Amino acid sequence: MCSCISVLPSSPASTNPLTVCTLLFPITPSLHLAPRIIVVYHKNTNVYPLRCRGRHLGGGSVMETAGTGVHRSGGVNHGRSDRLGIIGFGAIGRRLASFFATTEDGPRTLALLVRDHQRDAASALVPGAQVCTDIEGFLEAVPTVAVECASASALGTYGPRLLEASCDLIPLSLGAFADRATERRLLEAAARGPGRLEIAAGALGSIGFLAAAREHDLDRVTITIGYPIERWRVMGAERFIDLDQVRSPTPFLESDARNVATLFPGNLNVVTGASLAGLGLDRTHVALVADPTVTQAWFQVEASSASGPVRMHIGGRDAAVDADPIDYTTFSIIRLLKRRCASLAI
Results as ranks from 00 to 15, higher is better:
E230Q: 15
R231H: 14
W232N: 00
W232Y: 01
W232P: 00
W232S: 00
R233E: 08
V234C: 02
V234H: 11
M235L: 15
G236A: 07
G236M: 07
A237K: 05
R239L: 13
R239K: 15
F240K: 10
I241H: 02
I241T: 07
D242G: 01
L243R: 01
D244W: 07
V246G: 03
V246W: 00
V246I: 08
S248D: 03
S248W: 05
P249E: 00
P249M: 01
T250W: 00
P251Q: 08
P251C: 05
P251R: 07
F252M: 07
L253Y: 11
E254W: 02
E254S: 14
S255T: 07
S255I: 03
S255D: 13
D256K: 02
D256H: 12
A257H: 07
N259F: 11
N259W: 14
N259D: 13
N259V: 13
F264N: 07
F264W: 09
P265S: 06
N267Q: 15
L268P: 13
N269F: 09
N269I: 02
V270Q: 10
V270F: 07
V271W: 04
V271E: 08
V271Y: 08
T272Y: 08
T272C: 15
G273K: 08
S275G: 15
L276Y: 05
L276A: 09
L276F: 09
A277C: 14
L279W: 06
G280C: 14
L281P: 07
L281V: 09
D282F: 05
R283C: 12
T284N: 10
H285E: 12
L288S: 03
D291I: 04
D291E: 04
P292F: 00
V294Y: 02
V294D: 02
Q296W: 00
Q296N: 05
F299T: 08
V301T: 11
E302G: 12
E302Q: 15
E302I: 12
A303N: 13
A306P: 03
A306H: 06
S307G: 12
G308P: 13
G308F: 08
P309W: 01
P309S: 11
V310C: 15
V310H: 14
V310P: 05
R311W: 06
